[in-house]
């Protein structure tokens, strides 16, 4: 199976995702420049974190107009696996592949630190190796991770089990106290209705090797591999 890491001007976690897929997951991976128009046979698209176009406008608002995003939207609609991390999540929201929007963190600061998230749905392509309700230690690093959606949208997300991760404490307790950025209902990551597109604020690629403080994030990459193998 082949992974593609999308590179926009201003992406800065592209090399980190590439490293995990190539050297930790040991799968073929290539960079795809945002001006390309085809995905050229990849099985999973990773939209990495960073500051596409500097995030000088609303995060992800310019990146979504890159030529490659048309191919990504077609790929997702055909059921292809797409994971957007941090700025990648913001781009997926802007491009309409995922519902909702991002507001600034409630403390109005960039926040970089390890947090805990509870796996609310361990049946997805991205989490099938996680235990039910497994708590993962994964870092966040963002200015705008305060997820928002209207009440009807939230009900839909909950009904369809689209909420994959919520911020919690070490023991899995989901509470406002453990919400770093003000995200609605402690939401840290969601999928689309079909379950093949995941957006998440925490960075699994930064927690895929024990040396860096946690290898919990690797469960996501490993899950994707297993899901693709069994497809």
């Amino acid at each position: 199976m082949k992974f593609g890491v999308v590179v926009f001007p201003g992406s800065n976690c592209d090399m980190d995702c590439f490293h995990v897929v190539k050297n930790v997951l040991r799968q073929p991976v290539k960079y795809i420049w945002h001006k390309e128009t085809t995905l050229d046979g990849v099985d999973c698209v990773i939209i990495p974190g960073g500051f596409s176009y500097g995030d000088y406008l609303r995060c992800g608002a310019i990146a979504r107009f890159s030529p490659l995003m048309n191919a990504v939207v077609d790929f997702a609609k055909a059921g292809g696996l797409v994971i957007g991390i941090c700025n990648g999540f913001q781009i997926l929201l802007e491009s309409g592949l995922l519902p909702g929007a991002m507001l600034r963190n409630t403390n109005l600061h960039f926040i970089c630190k390890y947090v805990y998230v509870k796996t609310e749905n361990s049946k997805t392509a991205f989490t099938n190796l996680c235990k039910k309700n497994q708590v993962l230690k994964i870092p966040i690093a963002h200015n705008e991770g305060n997820y928002f959606i209207d009440q009807e949208g939230l009900r839909m997300l909950e009904r369809n089990r689209q909420i994959v991760f919520r911020y919690c404490n070490q023991t899995g307790l989901v509470d406002k106290k453990f919400n770093p950025n003000g995200a609605l209902a402690n939401i840290a990551g969601i999928t689309n209705r079909g379950g093949n597109v995941l957006g998440m604020m925490p960075h699994p690629e930064r927690s895929s090797e024990g040396q860096l403080g946690s290898a919990d994030g690797f469960l996501l990459f490993h899950s994707i591999k297993k899901w693709l193998e069994n497809k």
Binding site: N12, C13, M15, D16, H19, V20, G49, H109, F110, I111, C112, K113, P139, A141, H203, E205, R206, S208, E209, Q211, L212, G213
Partner: peptide, 15 residues
């Protein structure tokens, strides 16, 4: 330091 991204590039072994 929590306002600084101190983990990008995934090399920071001691935070």
């Amino acid at each position: 330091y929590q306002q600084y991204d101190h983990m990008v590039q995934t090399n920071t072994v001691v935070l």
